[in-house]
Design a protein around this nucleic acid. Structure first.
Lengths: 184, 184
DNA sequence: CATACCTATTCACATTTTTGAGTATCAGAG
DNA sequence: CTCTGATACTCAAAAATGTGAATAGGTATG
């Protein structure tokens, strides 16, 4: 979770930033964040600074300590435990499609595609903001941090794949129902 | 979990079949399977049939009941709760790459690529087994069940994307270290 | 003939994740 | 002036998941 601390931020800020940037490969609820932050504070990896706000509830701004920075470094160095965890209900439905409600599955795929389109658009906006007018080449050469950009690209390619696959699947299903109808 | 019951099978069989076919979008431990099977038996969605084996421990063969079949149908019809859950440690490391151990992250990406290659090969073998000599066109037209084939294709495109992205990322990182060295 | 791994399942426990609410303040809409 | 919604958290409890080992016979390897 230390992944998200590249600047000072409140738990609330993080929860939102999460959605925008890392939701792609890691999901989380606010509760989890706060718990982790508390834990990390106890371990001395982050420090909290309470900011009194006149017209808002107080918030705690967290920042990485030297120890935290080291922990991040150590984390990246250690071998990765598991390859990846994917859990996609849509694909479960597609898997049982032949014994299930074909029409509903089709709708579900279409919905997923819409959703992917929207996400792709958001990613693209974020990407343009990161690039800030520069070419990708220039960005990779100049930018301070390229990690987030690389993960963003992975998220984009994932959503594009979703779209392509969905398109293919819908076409195939249509062909099939047409063929089956013709067959009797 | 009802997703995997298209034929009679023991818990052990399922656990293995899982790895081969659905591990792609759903992960599970044996315990979870057995627990779910017990639960589903209690709910009447599956029936168990004990098979005595001379030279092996006895096993219970499960099959879907009519109620189970209906439950599957109902499941595919209901709207999907969450889009998907991805949780990839590699991308977390890539995200912190700039504050972490660049060399280690590079190794991790390379490892992931090897792993993806292996997985792709297994998927391809499975695909050939499903096609069984037929063309894809023919398969979609004739086959009894196309759901598993569609999810398999999704798994394959996912791994291919992993490879492409990894390749790109490694190239960029190399370029960058070269550029930074030249810069001082 | 010892060793290790495969079948087939179960148990107990630990950890994680999710769910759903509760607290409190302020801004803007109607 | 009330109501909704955003900010900024916290708590308790349930549900799901994962860990690690125990059991117990069989089969293949050296």
């Amino acid at each position: 979770m230390a992944a998200l601390l590249k600047g000072e931020a409140s738990g609330y800020d993080l929860a939102k930033a999460f959605d925008a940037t890392v939701a792609n490969f890691w999901m989380s609820t606010p509760q989890q964040l706060y718990r982790e932050l508390d834990r990390m504070e106890a371990e001395g990896l982050v420090t909290a600074r309470v900011v009194e706000q006149e017209r808002r509830p107080n918030k705690r701004l967290f920042s990485l300590t030297e120890a935290g920075r080291k922990a991040v470094h150590a984390y990246t160095a250690e071998p990765l435990g598991k390859p990846a965890v994917v859990r996609d209900e849509l694909l479960v439905k597609v898997q049982c499609l032949d014994a299930g409600d074909m029409e509903a599955v089709r709708t579900a795929i279409a919905e997923r595609m819409e959703w992917a389109t929207a996400k792709l658009a958001r990613y693209e906006r974020l990407r343009q903001r990161l690039l800030d007018g520069r070419s990708e080449e220039a960005y990779f050469a100049e930018a301070e941090r390229i990690g987030p950009y690389l993960t963003l690209l992975r998220g984009m390619s994932f959503e594009r794949e979703n779209l392509q696959w969905g398109d293919m699947a819908l076409r195939r299903l249509e062909q099939r129902t047409a063929a089956l109808r013709a067959d009797g």
